[in-house]
Design a protein around this nucleic acid. Structure first.
Lengths: 190, 190
DNA sequence: GATATGACCAAAGAACTAAATTAGTCAATG
DNA sequence: CATTGACTAATTTAGTTCTTTGGTCATATC
């Protein structure tokens, strides 16, 4: 009977953002959903955007857990990169909040949303970069500019998974894996 | 003293599109610039969009001439692909009409402009595809899915040239060439 | 009679405004 | 002293008028 108000607020906001998007979610709505006075929200968060940031941070942590869960140390490195990336993009295309935000950016161009999605992309690149660096230090793959490599990996993935489907039939997971393997296995860009 | 009205119209429209963009160009303006009655435009073109199409077609032809002009048969295939792609993107970033259209798409999302840019992209991919196919038939590079390869090549290029600069210092032409060479030289995606 | 023209029209869009909504504050409350 | 919701300044929406624009066509020109 002493509910954690902070958690209730975050839960309510997450639900509302997922359902209606960022702009269409009002603080009154969040307060009502969380069974909390509106003022209370502002004792935990400086403003709407900061509340949003906290939720996105959780989402990123969740994504990384997902990606890690799919990695199997015994598999070759390239296979694991593929698995992780595939899981990440699958996550992005299945998670309600992500779907809503991507949609909101496309059709309304909400600034705060664009910034958050860019942030998520950067987090994914940082994650990849770290994986690549440890693989290099273990001698699993040749040395390379890890920043460019992780950046390109993600861009290629997005191109193959999203952009490609604008004009062509979707590629199978196997085809994508094959393309990525070629790219990663051979000498990486220096 | 018998000016080719059609050419005057196209020239006027090209100038106006380059200067003000597609939406902000009015048919009255084009008519005035071309020293022609507005109705005359409609004896040559069904509507504004068709006039736009004609101009974009010329632009694409111009781009292909540019790309071809930079190819030297004696150089290795990968080097030529790099040169052609680099020239194409340079063209895109220097040509007034292209600059204006890209800008208009970004900040106003004009539908007709988006469609045209997509069309230009498809033309570039078709051009690359054809180059790759002849190279394969000559045994210069291993066989591959040319559609995916040309698609990916362009996407990678755009990512490296445009997207990368959003968060990093620009890459040198040499760096870009190196990355592309790795990708193209090794086995291509099947 | 073939071609060119610009006044004209319907439709789309801009500009303006009033009304409604909303993020954030703060004096009152328990 | 943590919580609240009525309050406010600022933004957004909705409704309306006024303007602009793509496209047509009757008239003028050669």
């Amino acid at each position: 009977m002493a509910p954690d108000r902070r958690k209730m607020i975050v839960a309510a906001a997450t639900k509302s953002f997922s359902l209606f998007g960022y702009k269409a979610t009002t603080m009154d709505q969040v307060a009502k959903l969380a069974n909390v006075g509106k003022g209370t929200i502002y004792t935990f968060f400086k403003n709407k955007e900061e509340l949003f940031e906290e939720i996105i941070s959780s989402l990123v942590r969740e994504m990384i857990v997902e990606a890690d869960s799919v990695i199997q140390p015994k598999l070759p490195f390239t296979e694991n990169v593929h698995r992780a990336l595939y899981r990440l993009l699958e996550f992005r295309s299945q998670h309600q909040l992500m779907i809503k935000l991507v949609q909101e950016e496309a059709e309304m161009g909400t600034l705060a949303v664009s910034e958050m999605l860019q942030h998520v992309e950067n987090e994914i690149i940082a994650y990849l970069k770290q994986k690549i660096e440890t693989a290099i230090s273990k001698g699993a793959i040749p040395a390379a500019n890890t920043e460019i490599t992780s950046f390109l990996l993600l861009k290629m993935y997005i191109a193959l998974v999203s952009d490609w489907e604008r004009n062509h039939a979707p590629l199978s997971s196997e085809q994508i894996a094959e393309i990525m393997k070629v790219f990663l296995l051979q000498g990486l860009p220096t």
